[in-house]
């Protein structure tokens, strides 16, 4: 099964919609609750990152019996130093994003803690691609 969801940069009222769809999908598949939670927390942090930092992006979701693969591809400023961005507490978020309850530098580490596999590629000035792979059975 394949699904695609558009993510609008800067639109904090809709952030989380795509991850919410992922949650419903996994529930319908009867996936174990703890795995669902890990998956949607990673997906949601990634989605919020697109909203907070990029101009826009797409979440691609592929699901089979054993695995879910979520790819978030955005157009945006990209990440200069991924290693540094992974450090807990490091953040380039604007004050506006901080006042939304995000941007405390925990997003990427939350993703890493929850994803079974996490791959990040980025090109400065172009955008970022985040891949989250989950074993669901």
């Amino acid at each position: 099964m394949h699904f695609e969801y558009n993510i609008e940069g800067g639109d904090f009222t809709r952030a989380g919609y795509a991850s919410s769809q992922v949650k419903k999908l996994l529930k319908k598949q009867g996936v174990e609750m703890s795995v669902i939670k890990r998956t949607v927390v990673a997906a949601y942090e990634a989605e919020v990152n697109v909203v907070a930092h990029a101009y826009g992006g797409v979440m691609y979701v592929d699901l089979d019996d054993r695995q879910m693969r979520i790819v978030l591809q955005d157009t945006g400023p990209g990440i200069e130093d991924i290693q540094q961005a992974m450090e807990e507490g490091y953040s380039t978020a604007s004050d506006a994003v901080r006042e939304m309850g995000f941007g405390a530098g925990m997003g990427l580490s939350n993703m890493k803690k929850n994803a079974h596999e996490l791959n990040i590629e980025s090109e400065v000035g172009k955008g970022t691609r985040v891949e989250i792979i989950m074993q669901i059975a």
Partner: peptide, 17 residues
């Protein structure tokens, strides 16, 4: 318990069960 009242508060509750 939070003082942050926006859509993301509800989304976060949803994702965290």
């Amino acid at each position: 318990i939070t003082g942050l009242a926006n859509m993301q508060t509800i989304r976060t509750a949803e994702m965290s069960d």
